[in-house]
Design a protein around this nucleic acid. Structure first.
Length: 256
DNA sequence: ATGGCTACGATCCGTAGA
């Protein structure tokens, strides 16, 4: 199973690129974030035409997440149960023998801001939710835009970013709290090229300078980590005209 | 020098992203 995550930054704008990428990369499962579209306006017909079932948790203008799969999606759950939130950031579904949770974690805006407080509360709720999910589903994958660069090697210029939102110690502690549930950062299961990132600012020619962050991640339960044969980032879509500012991250899982 | 793009939905600027 090839499983991917991609923050598309508007499904409406990126649909042609997404369809091209699905045809080229042939992922079995794709977690999408920042649809910026309500579910009724999600391009379900086009994606079904490309061979993908869709589970959508949409929202107008902001947020919005979806899971695409080449095989049926079952037991679809939207949002974090028990966590009151207007923002549509989570959807989960079962694909074959794998439970998939797609997340668009809050940005946090600035350390100490109201949105930063929301980000930390949201991560605490996510941890509680994933703990329950792991109890029910030993084969669990959590894929999405976490808006946290876990370590300094995930940051193009750690000095410039020191203490800033996405790298601050409370955010990194929230990330480590997810790992402490028994989840593995799939990317770090393998030797990787230095300075591999998944997001580059639209400004300042950041992509050309590789001035990026690794903030899009695929976490795997122990059972799935054992089955993981590759973890990569596909930078090609970021090279296109009018790209998303994020690149897809992918894992390969062999049959269990 | 803290900006510089991009998307959206309201207008021709503000909010948000990261």
């Amino acid at each position: 199973m090839k499983l991917a995550t991609w923050n598309v930054n508007s499904i409406k704008v990126r649909l042609p690129q997404l369809l091209e990428w699905l045809a080229a990369a042939r992922p079995d499962v794709v977690c999408l974030q920042e649809l910026k579209t309500e579910a009724a306006k999600f391009p379900r017909t086009e994606l079904e035409g490309a061979g993908y079932a869709c589970a959508v948790n949409g929202q107008k203008t902001y947020n919005g997440v979806a899971i695409l799969a080449r095989t049926p999606l079952t037991d679809v759950t939207a949002d974090i149960p028990g966590f009151a939130d207007e923002q549509r950031r989570v959807i989960a579904a079962t694909v074959q023998d794998v439970r998939v949770v797609c997340v668009y974690c809050p940005n946090g805006q600035a350390v100490g801001s109201e949105k930063y407080g929301y980000k930390l509360r949201w991560f605490a709720a996510l941890r509680e939710y994933l703990q329950v999910e792991l109890g029910k589903h030993p084969r669990l994958a959590v894929a999405g835009d976490f808006n946290v660069a876990p370590e300094d090697r995930d940051v193009h210029d750690p000095k410039a970013w020191e203490g800033q939102v996405h790298v601050s110690e409370p955010e990194r502690a929230a990330w480590r709290a997810l790992l402490e549930l028994g989840l593995k950062d799939s990317f770090r299961l393998f030797a990787q090229p230095e300075k591999t990132f998944t997001w580059w600012d639209y400004r300042m020619m950041a992509f050309r300078r590789n001035a990026g962050l690794r903030i899009d991640h695929i976490l795997l339960s122990a059972d799935l980590a054992e089955r993981c044969t590759a973890a990569t980032v596909d930078k090609e879509p970021r090279r296109l005209e009018r790209p998303s500012d994020h690149a897809p991250a992918l894992v390969e899982l062999r049959a269990g």
